[in-house]
Amino acid sequence: MAVPSGTFQTYTQTNIREDLSNLIFNVDPYKTPVLNMAKKTKATQRNHEWDTDSLAAQNLSNAQVEGDTPATYLTLTPTARMGNYVQTSNKPVSISGLSQAVVAAGGSNKMGYQLLKKSKELKRDIEGILTYNHAKSIGNSTTASTTAGLPAWLYTNTVFQTGGSPSGANPSLNANGWTDGTSTRTYNSVTAAITEAQVKQVLQSIYKNSGDCPEYAIVSPANKQNISAFTGPGTRFIEVEDKTLQTAVDVYSSDFGDVKIIPDIFLAQSKDCFFINPDYIRVAYLRPFQTIPLAKVGDSDQKLLLVDYALEVGNEHAHGLLTDTTG
């Protein structure tokens, strides 16, 4: 059927308003399992400190004569004083007055939208920092202080590929934690696929040194799939709903208890696999997440998202580390 001659069509019409949805779609991931599972505590100084302790070795000769008075008293050992420095992370936002005045997709609250977006980005940054292999540093007037990441504190229950090893002093024996500026791990350039034997080795070590089984294994997406592909005898997976993390997870049923396998996109070292007991990991906040209005400069508004925090590893015997995987 032909269009009648002279019909005015949209193809030549110049005054049609644009059809732009008021929704802004963003599919970038922002789940931060380590930050979410870590208990919150308060820091009051730039050097956040805590004590750790341990029981004496088992004494199989502890047999006493009835009514006897002890000839000597036990030598009591003091607690080990640990410490980590507070690190400041922020996200500054500046929007011009004209930008806030014009009509645009996303609604009229452009500052609110940007602050919400930057808060997610800030949490993603912190997730990587908490799992980053670096030592603590007090900083100075020109250098930012840094908080030592989780790998820096894990020494006892560690499994490396050939050539990898812990380096530096055992943090559980060092009152000041890791020495500033010292590399905390010797990673191997040669990596290998994660194996069930390695997972069992880490879990056995954690159980021997803490008497408990870690609740979570935090791994890269690739290692999540590698672990799901375990085929050894006794490998059993069940799917559950973890209400704290609000995600479907797999549970590895080990000889010492069930371990929830959680993929983490934002692991700073994706080849690391962390086995975590959340009762012994905290993030200490000196200044919690907050929005600070900055002085108005010209025709613009500035705000600063800011947080001061330090990683606190209550006792490294409760956790484990498997490194140098191809994940």
Rank of each mutant, 00 (worst) to 15 (best):
K110R: 11
L35V: 11
N223Q: 04
E49F: 07
S254K: 02
A104P: 01
R282G: 01
T231V: 08
N315L: 02
Q269G: 10
A101D: 08
K303L: 15
N140F: 05
T147G: 03
Y155W: 12
Y216I: 10
T10H: 09
T75F: 06
L294T: 12
Q114P: 00
Q198S: 13
P278S: 09
L55G: 06
T143H: 09
A169C: 09
I95K: 12
L245C: 07
L35S: 03
I126S: 04
L98I: 10
T186L: 10
P293Y: 08
G149D: 03
V249R: 11
N15T: 14
T147V: 07
Q9T: 14
F275S: 04
T244Q: 10
Q201K: 14
W178C: 02
T69N: 12
N170I: 11
G314V: 06
C273A: 12
G257M: 07
G67Y: 07
T147P: 02
L203M: 15
A101I: 08
A318N: 14
L322Y: 04
E312P: 04
G232F: 01
A57P: 08
L150Q: 01
V283C: 02
Q198E: 15
S189G: 09
K31H: 14
G107W: 01
V297F: 09
S183R: 07
V65M: 13
E215V: 10
R81D: 03
V102I: 14
E49G: 05
G163I: 02
H48W: 04
T7S: 12
R185H: 07
P151M: 11
S205Y: 08
S119M: 14
T79G: 04
A148Q: 01
N47E: 09
Y11R: 13
V202A: 03
D279C: 04
K200N: 15
Q114E: 15
L55N: 11
E121A: 07
P293K: 09
A2Q: 13
S189M: 07
T184P: 04
L245E: 01
D299W: 04
D301P: 04
Y216N: 06
F266W: 04
V3S: 12
T235V: 13
V219L: 00
H319T: 02
N209I: 03
D180H: 02
A318L: 12
K40E: 10
Q58G: 05
I138Y: 13
L304Y: 05
V313S: 01
P293S: 15
P293G: 14
V3D: 12
N109D: 14
F289T: 06
T156S: 13
W50M: 10
P166F: 01
D242V: 02
I292P: 02
I16G: 09
A268K: 08
K243W: 01
A2G: 10
R81M: 11
K39C: 05
L115Y: 02
N223T: 14
L305M: 11
R282C: 03
P33F: 03
T191Q: 15
V219A: 01
A318H: 08
S54I: 08
S89R: 13
Y132R: 10
C213L: 11
G320V: 00
T14H: 15
V249E: 04
K271A: 09
Y285S: 05
K136H: 07
